[in-house]
Design a protein around this nucleic acid. Sequence first.
DNA 1: AGATATTTTTGACGCGCGTAAAGAAATTTC
DNA 2: GAAATTTCTTTACGCGCGTCAAAAATATCT
Lengths: 343, 343
Amino acid sequence: MSGYKIRNMEEFAALSGLSRPTVSKYFNDPGSVRPRTRKRIEEALERYDFRPNIFAMNQNRSLTKNVGIVVPYLADPFFAEIARIIERRCIDAGFSPVLYSSHGEQKLEVEILEGLTALKPAGVFLAPLGRLSDRGAIERFCRNVPTVLFDSNIEGMGEAFVGSDNFSFVQQTVEYLCRTGSPPCFFEMRNPANPNANKRRRAYIRLMEEAGLEPHVIKVEGEGWGFEEIGRRGAHELFASGGPATDTVLCSNDRLAIGFLAACYERGLRVGRGDGCALRVASHDDHPFSRFTCPSLTTAAHEYEAVAAKCMETLFSLIEAGGRFENRMETLIPARLILRASA
Amino acid sequence: MSGYKIRNMEEFAALSGLSRPTVSKYFNDPGSVRPRTRKRIEEALERYDFRPNIFAMNQNRSLTKNVGIVVPYLADPFFAEIARIIERRCIDAGFSPVLYSSHGEQKLEVEILEGLTALKPAGVFLAPLGRLSDRGAIERFCRNVPTVLFDSNIEGMGEAFVGSDNFSFVQQTVEYLCRTGSPPCFFEMRNPANPNANKRRRAYIRLMEEAGLEPHVIKVEGEGWGFEEIGRRGAHELFASGGPATDTVLCSNDRLAIGFLAACYERGLRVGRGDGCALRVASHDDHPFSRFTCPSLTTAAHEYEAVAAKCMETLFSLIEAGGRFENRMETLIPARLILRASA
DNA sequence: AGATATTTTTGACGCGCGTAAAGAAATTTC
DNA sequence: GAAATTTCTTTACGCGCGTCAAAAATATCT
């Protein structure tokens, strides 16, 4: 590679022995020029290492190759994981993904969406905060930018939603727990920000009632994103005031369960399904760390890859369709039960 | 806010009763126009909701307000956490942070740096892959973009490095462990990608020798970013072949320790410092989950906020200095020992 | 009030590229 | 080998804003 620095496409075109419009055409779609021309450009590219100016490119295009990925809280490994997979797939598909975290704050989510609009993205994957989201701001955003919601559904927002089928999650854990021992209580936060939590509680209650069993919902106090600590404290309070109604606890999500297990350990309560175990604990999400809890956590797993694949597929067809679907598309992906030691 | 959509700054300036250059001046520095003029612009801003076109703005500026944050693996909660704090501070300082994860791959790290160059960022925070990094590519990048390395130091690269003082980390854990029980073995990966691991091993050996004790380094096999699983498997192999030389194990980092603790639990080995405990385990990093392990993990903590603050401060002075320091600046921040139940 | 300093306006050019039209050149077709 | 087709070149304009110089307007000071 020559050390010479090229200033612009004009200069690069001259060095390739071609005209600028032809080179411009190549960069927009390498397949749109004659093979021999393409080869000449790519040879020059090897020699001179030129890249068209992104800002100038995007300025004159109504649509860019940018794709936004917005999650509510990136320090939550669940979102880090799903974002990682989606990001990877965007890159492989030739897009420029830009990753944002709302850090759990409404104001930041709104600002991110506003800033994202200015990037004229081809599309956006948005996992909204949920209860804390500014519905007006999200609606406004979705009108301007082709958006696929994921993880948390907000009725009517965006052209599509891809997420997990919460009913399937709870159905599998409840069915398994009832079949192999006493029916579970349900352990959750009192005011969950994430709408999935509500769906899971309702699924639990419905499934218990359908089985002729009495549902027990344990609600613990706590705000914010420190779920493990909320679960830990809640568990201690629960045990201090007599403990759960049965010896089986189903947590709304793995992060609460991680805290719950920590509290059990601190109290010397052995968790698991064998002899000498005081109680069973199961949960939902298959958090990346749930196989390293003590004991390892029985949980209903998200199909991370399947969710990511469906997200991509949905956004592509949305872009093809010009940014609008006739009917809002909802895809719910069922869970996969993972049996480990805790239940 | 009026529903009318403004096309460009020209139009917005006209609606504010001002000229475009004045408005342009305002957007570059709101304090550079007369207070009354500023008020007029901001009132118009309330009414019409105009934002200058990012692409056009950046095209004509030699330097943007973009700041890149590159971490080796965002699904690692340690990096998610440090990235979160840095990102937050960038936003508060009026910059536009863009977050990238190398996903543990050299090729991706190089591509990110190349793409980042095109964004003409005011500066970049780079936590390199370490051993897997393409040194040539990073060097080239650092020549073009004011870069502050963090977490992993690579000698001579970038204008500055901000990280944790590995010697201080190990010093504190070793001192504590030796003072309160038998001296520790050191548990680590055989081929760590991250240079901090090597510094920690050397610190351990040196500290043990200085104390007249024999160092024992246990090296476990494993590649990639699944540290917990590597630690878990390594621990099982260790116990299967006779166990550690002493009843105290110091892990190179918390993620290995999380796996180690999982293995101990699976083997029915009680960890902690009380009676009836088979061994003590300590570690380094204060991983966000280390307080929820069973037992909770005694560890040397990064001063996350201090590291982030120093990163910001360093980059600011680097930008002020025109992107070059006379001498490469290295800041090492000492650890804070956190005593929990595991040792 | 007049002189001086500061701020704003006017007008103009440039950034690097997208894109369109018309003609030239190369390629394919019969 | 000529006609039809495809591809490329030339020329030119536009995108939205940064930035500069000179002139005009406004504010500050004595």
